Simulated assay, not measured.
Amino acid sequence: MTLSLPQPPAAALRAVLTALDSPSAVCAGRGSATRQRSGQLVPALPLPVHLLDAEATASARGTATGMLNGARRTGWRFLILDGDEVVAAAETRETAEGEHVFAHFAEGPYPLSTKRALHQARAHTTSSPTPFLPRLLSVPGRYMTALWLHPVLDPAHGRDLLIPLAPAPLGVTAHVPYDAGHLLAPLSNGNGSLLTAAS
């Protein structure tokens, strides 16, 4: 098996396409790397974004499964391509009413690192009998974002895997697949709450 790429809500895709066509969004949210592009920019490789923060881990009881179960989905992130080149990412957020609205464009190292991590994930899961659903896990208290590979058919026997994106926090190696428990345990304290970078 391999990755089971998720289908984003149609409203999330429409929000990104509208932002790409909006002069105000372009001027306010897109950096020089995308504004200078003359080709057609296309959203691709959408991934749901899950937030792992102190609130989400309050009832986790120190286990990786509990932490990941507490990570709530906040929206979707699309890579923005110019041909085959990743030039940015676009993120949507889910409102309390369940609507999907455009949030912001992002440049920097994470978009390209996301594409690299997806290639690694495909190679890593090819020999696995279990399909994995890729997600993005944001851990703001540790300044970390990781590609989260969640087993979809047999979670009782499959393991959640995390591939940290670059740049990764101190003590974590980017672009190395980790068992979720091995990666999250050092990032938490005794009661299961995430340590902050200043702890």
Rank of each mutant, 00 (worst) to 15 (best):
H119G: 11
G190R: 12
L165Q: 00
V152N: 08
F102H: 04
L153C: 11
A156T: 08
A174L: 10
A174Q: 09
G171D: 00
R93T: 13
R122G: 14
S138H: 03
E85W: 14
A180S: 13
H124Q: 03
A123H: 02
R142D: 06
F132N: 06
H124R: 05
Y178S: 06
S113N: 08
T114E: 07
R159C: 07
M144W: 07
S193R: 13
G108I: 06
P111D: 10
T196Q: 04
A117Q: 07
H124I: 00
L118N: 08
S193V: 13
L195D: 07
L161N: 11
P140K: 06
L195T: 05
S113P: 05
H182Y: 06
G158H: 03
P131N: 03
Y178C: 07
E85H: 13
P109F: 02
E85F: 13
E97F: 11
L161F: 07
A174I: 03
D84R: 12
N191E: 13
G108P: 11
L165D: 00
A89G: 14
I163G: 04
N189M: 03
V172A: 10
A174D: 10
P134C: 00
L137P: 08
D154C: 03
E91H: 15
L136M: 09
D154L: 12
R159L: 05
L170H: 11
E94H: 10
V139P: 07
G83Y: 13
Y143R: 13
R159K: 05
K115N: 08
Y178P: 04
S138I: 02
V101F: 10
A103R: 13
L187H: 01
F102Y: 11
P164R: 09
P177T: 05
N189F: 09
A88H: 06
W148N: 03
L153V: 10
R122K: 15
G83N: 12
W148E: 02
A90P: 05
S188K: 02
G98E: 04
L147K: 07
A96V: 12
A88Q: 11
D82S: 15
E97A: 15
S138R: 01
G171E: 00
R122A: 14
E99F: 02
L195N: 01
L149H: 06
V86H: 04
V176T: 10
H104G: 12
P169C: 08
F105C: 04
H119R: 11
L81F: 15
G192D: 06
T130M: 15
V139W: 10
P167I: 06
P129L: 06
V86K: 12
P164C: 09
A96L: 08
E85T: 15
A185P: 03
T92Q: 00
P177K: 03
A88T: 10
E94N: 05
H124V: 05
R135I: 07
L153N: 13
